[in-house]
């Protein structure tokens, strides 16, 4: 297995394109190394993107935040204004694995590992962020929801990579939240996960909302009915109840070692309602 640590995305993409065999990108490596050691994959090339400057930074500008593909979760949590603007995105990523895993794991890896249960993805999808993708033919922006296409599969071409994520500018009275259900308090894969992102007007009426649910289908999905239940409401008990119902209705989970389908369908609604309430509370505080 060849190991490369290029300094630019162009070099990285060129190396991917030039490889005839199985080429993989290494960001945090917390999924990749597990697979490598379990012999689930035997790559011919590993391209470490941690030496590429644009993949390493968190930029805050008038158009919003840009987060590099190799930024570790712990760095997100240590970034005060990012945490203030996107608490749900940060907490979603912050729930991936242990403190140790947090030191390495990235949004990119969590997204491209393409697990339906990935903790960062519902909040990313709810945020409306886009992925800045670089390939041999240049750059393109892809909606987060369009990156994973099924368990373990993405829409990225073999010679494409994510350089960074661009988040929309944050208006007033806007906030997000991520909640998941796991049987322990830590160290588990989400049995269900929900990201909620919403904005309020001066009167406290919800003007915009996105609700995304994870681990209840082959990919993370948006629940428009849940968003509709919030928009125009005061995010009162009735609206929250409607979010619960909409999310449970939208879920199409399977039964596996982590939970039964019935359990997931019920619990995703409960967790959605609670996540929406947290996002609402935060938005009220975010004047």
């Amino acid at each position: 297995m060849q190991y490369l640590a290029p300094k630019t995305c162009a070099e990285a993409v060129a190396a991917l394109a030039a490889c005839d065999g199985d080429a993989r990108l290494l960001a945090g490596g917390t999924d990749l190394l597990v697979r490598l050691q379990a012999d689930m994959i035997e790559p011919d090339l590993l391209v470490d993107i941690k030496h590429i400057d644009t993949c390493q930074s968190i930029e805050e500008g008038p158009d919003g935040f840009v987060i590099g593909a190799a930024v570790a979760s712990a760095e997100l949590g240590e970034h005060a204004s990012l945490t203030q603007a996107w608490p749900g995105v940060v907490e979603g990523m912050g729930l991936v694995g242990s403190t140790q895993v947090q030191g390495r794991a990235t949004l990119t890896g969590n997204l491209c590992n393409a697990s339906p249960a990935a903790d960062s993805v519902p909040a990313l999808v709810a945020s409306g962020a886009v992925a800045n993708v670089i390939g041999p033919h240049g750059k393109r922006q892809v909606d987060i929801i369009d990156i994973p296409t099924g368990p373990g599969r993405t829409s990225l071409a073999k010679d494409e990579m994510i350089e960074s994520f661009s988040f929309p500018a944050r208006g007033p009275r806007s906030a997000d939240a991520y909640l998941r259900f796991i049987p322990r308090t830590e160290m588990d894969i989400a049995v269900v996960g929900v990201g909620v992102n919403l904005s309020l007007d001066e009167n406290g009426t919800c003007t915009d909302a996105r609700v995304a649910i994870g681990a209840v289908g082959p990919t993370v999905m948006l629940v428009p009915a849940a968003a509709q239940a919030l928009i125009g409401s005061q995010v009162d008990a009735a609206a929250l109840q409607a979010v619960q119902t909409a999310c449970s209705d939208a879920a199409s989970p399977i039964s596996d070692k982590r939970g039964t389908a019935e359990f997931r369908k019920h619990t995703v609604g409960v967790i959605a309602r609670r996540a929406a309430a947290i996002a609402h509370q935060r938005a009220q505080a975010a004047e």
Partner: peptide, 16 residues
């Protein structure tokens, strides 16, 4: 720790 950051050394490559 690697550069002061707590990690699992089983999830870091030696080359890194």
């Amino acid at each position: 720790t690697v550069d002061g950051r707590l990690v699992c050394s089983c999830l870091v490559l030696g080359v890194e």
